[in-house]
Amino acid sequence: MKTMKAFLSALGCASMLLLAPASHAVDISHPPTPVILVDGTGTFGASFLSGNSGNTFSDKYTFSTVGLNFVDTLVGSIAHSALVGLTITGYDLYDSSNALVASGVMQSTGTVDLWTIATGGLPTGSYYVQVTGSIVSNTSASYAGNLNVLAVPEPQTYAMLLAGLGLVAGAARLRAKRT
């Protein structure tokens, strides 16, 4: 009889554990999203509904480059307290083969989370920035970012610039001799 009571008690506890809500984090990432670049700049971001406390995300924003480029980008989130909203825990730049190109630098955390990436010499290709973080409360939360892609001037551009400056200097010298 004692064995049966112990068995039923254990069965009851086990069923309660199975029916209890899971206490581990859930991945609430958004699908990869392209950044539409207009004149080399574009924006991106995401929002999360309330009730996601403790859940994590890892969102990807894709873009492509042509030629050699500088890439400067930032992502940020703001809340009235560090105890609400979300926390950005990482911000990185990857190429299409998932190789890390540049790691983000955390500028601030707390009520304002701000991360930046600045890199040069990025060749033609497909890339993505990845924002990772967690939701710290059951309130809604969001983050936003900006991506700037600037073409690196080619050596011919510098040669033309120097030639133009030389012509201007020569013209100024001729004008000075005439007066």
Rank of each mutant, 00 (worst) to 15 (best):
A46K: 09
A46E: 06
A46M: 07
A46H: 12
S47R: 02
S47E: 02
S47H: 01
S47T: 03
F48A: 12
F48N: 08
F48H: 11
F48L: 12
L49C: 08
L49K: 11
L49M: 14
L49D: 14
L49E: 11
S50F: 06
S50G: 14
G51F: 13
G51V: 06
N52V: 01
N52H: 07
S53A: 15
S53K: 15
S53H: 09
G54S: 14
G54I: 05
G54C: 14
G54D: 07
N55F: 02
N55H: 15
N55A: 11
T56W: 03
T56L: 10
T56E: 06
T56S: 13
T56Q: 11
T56M: 12
F57P: 02
S58Y: 01
S58P: 04
S58Q: 07
S58W: 02
D59E: 07
D59W: 06
D59L: 04
K60V: 11
Y61H: 13
Y61F: 15
T62I: 04
T62N: 12
T62L: 13
F63Q: 15
F63K: 15
S64Q: 15
S64D: 13
T65W: 11
T65P: 14
T65N: 15
T65M: 13
V66T: 14
V66W: 09
V66G: 13
G67K: 08
G67H: 08
G67I: 03
L68N: 13
L68V: 06
L68I: 05
L68W: 09
N69D: 05
N69R: 10
N69K: 09
F70A: 04
V71S: 12
D72N: 05
D72A: 06
D72R: 08
T73L: 11
T73K: 12
L74G: 06
L74F: 10
L74H: 11
V75L: 02
V75M: 03
V75A: 02
G76N: 12
G76W: 07
S77H: 12
S77W: 02
S77Y: 03
S77E: 03
S77K: 03
I78D: 02
I78T: 07
I78A: 10
A79C: 09
A79F: 06
A79W: 05
H80R: 09
H80T: 04
H80C: 03
S81I: 00
S81K: 02
S81H: 01
A82E: 04
A82R: 07
A82D: 04
V84C: 05
V84M: 06
V84T: 14
V84F: 05
G85K: 00
G85D: 00
G85V: 00
G85T: 00
G85E: 00
L86E: 00
L86H: 00
L86K: 01
L86W: 00
T87I: 11
T87D: 12
T87F: 04
T87Y: 05
T87S: 12
T87W: 04
I88S: 01
I88C: 01
I88R: 03
T89P: 00
T89K: 01
T89G: 00
G90H: 08
G90V: 03
G90T: 05
G90D: 06
G90K: 12
Y91H: 04
Y91G: 03
Y91N: 05
